[in-house]
Design a protein around this nucleic acid. Structure first.
Lengths: 154, 154
DNA sequence: CCGTAATCGCAACACTGTTGCATTTAAGCT
DNA sequence: AGCTTAAATGCAACAGTGTTGCGATTACGG
C-alpha cells in the first residue's frame, strides 16, 4: 500500500510531497519494473508532469529506504511488496510480459553465503533474479505450440 | 586463456581479427570487470585505438558465445573463467577493490529452481551476484580497525 | 594473390544519469 | 490561517552509455 510507504517517509523525517505520492502510485499499479523515464511517460499520460531529475532523486531515496528495489536484469524499479522481511529480496522476472514477483528464501540466503564463504569471500548482500515465464505466459505459450502443430505425433 | 577463446571463434565461423584479440587480451589481464569505455581507455594507453562501437559489438558477440559475462552490479564485462561448466555462472564482486570471482553451484541452482517453481514460475536461468569483501580487502579492513582503536576493550 | 563476406570506423543520434543553482513547497510554529 | 525555513523540486546544461546506417577495410578460403 502507498499509505504504508508514506508512513515510512514521515517516520524518517522526509516530506510527503506530491511528486513522491505520484511516483508511489504509479509503481503501485505497475505489473512490471519501470525505468525513471517510463514513470515520467506514464505520469504525463495522466496530465502530471515531473522533471526526470526529480524522479531519479525520488527513486534514490525510496531505494535507500527499501521502499523500492531496482531490478538489475531490466534496469527498472519496482515497489517492494514484502516490507521488511528477513533475508535478501529476490525476484522472478517474466521475459515475455515483464511481470515481476518478489520473494525471500532464507534457506537460499544461507546456502549462498556458505558457498561464497568457502571461496574466501565475506558476502554482504546477494542479488538474485530469475528469468523465465510466469504461469500465465507459460500457459499461453503451450496453447500456441498446440495450435501450431495440431494432433502432432512427433 | 585467450587461445581457447580464439578457437571457439574459429569453430563457430567467426573471424579472428585484431580488435577481437585485443579485447580478449585486455579482459584476460583485468582483475575487475571493465566497461566498454574502460577497455577503450586501456587499449589507448597501449597505443591501440578501437572505436567504441566496435568494442560494443565485440562484447555482444563474446557474450552470445559465453566467452564473456556481463556483471550487472557494475555494468562491466569479465572474461569467463569456467569454460562451459554446467549450471549458471555466478559472481562475487568485492565492493572495495572491484575484483570478481566466478563460480558455479549446482545445488544452489536446483534449490533456486525449486523455489521459483513453487511460486508458479518456469525459470530459464538464474542471475546471481554477491556483493561483499574479497579475502584480501577483508584483512586490510580488519587491520585498519585495529589501528584506529589500539588495545580497545569495547 | 585475389574476391568477397564479415568486420570495422565514422558520424550522428537516442537514451540514461548527474550537477549546480534558483524557485517552490511541506510542515512546524505561532 | 499566515509566517518561516529547511527540504524538495524544476531547470539548464552536461557527461556517460548504448545504437544505427553506411561506406571502407580486412581476414580468410580458394
Amino acid at each position: 500500500m502507498v499509505q504504508d510507504s508514506i508512513r515510512v517517509l514521515q517516520a524518517q523525517g522526509y516530506k510527503v510531497t506530491k511528486p513522491r505520492r505520484q511516483v508511489l502510485e504509479i509503481l503501485e499499479e505497475a505489473e512490471e519494473s519501470l525505468s525513471p523515464y517510463d514513470i515520467q511517460r506514464l505520469l504525463r499520460q495522466q496530465g502530471k508532469h515531473l522533471n526526470h531529475v526529480t524522479i531519479y532523486r525520488i527513486l534514490d531515496l525510496f531505494c535507500s529506504l527499501n521502499l523500492v528495489h531496482r531490478i538489475l536484469l531490466s534496469g527498472g524499479f519496482v515497489k517492494c511488496t514484502l516490507s521488511n522481511k528477513e533475508g535478501c529480496h529476490r525476484f522472478m522476472v517474466c521475459y515475455h510480459c515483464g511481470a515481476t514477483q518478489e520473494f525471500v528464501d532464507q534457506q537460499l540466503c544461507l546456502q549462498e553465503s556458505k558457498s561464497t564463504q568457502n571461496l574466501g569471500f565475506h558476502t554482504q548482500y546477494h542479488f538474485s533474479e530469475s528469468s523465465g515465464l510466469c504461469s500465465a505466459c507459460y500457459k499461453k505459450q503451450l496453447q500456441k505450440q498446440e495450435e501450431a502443430q495440431p494432433q502432432s505425433n512427433r
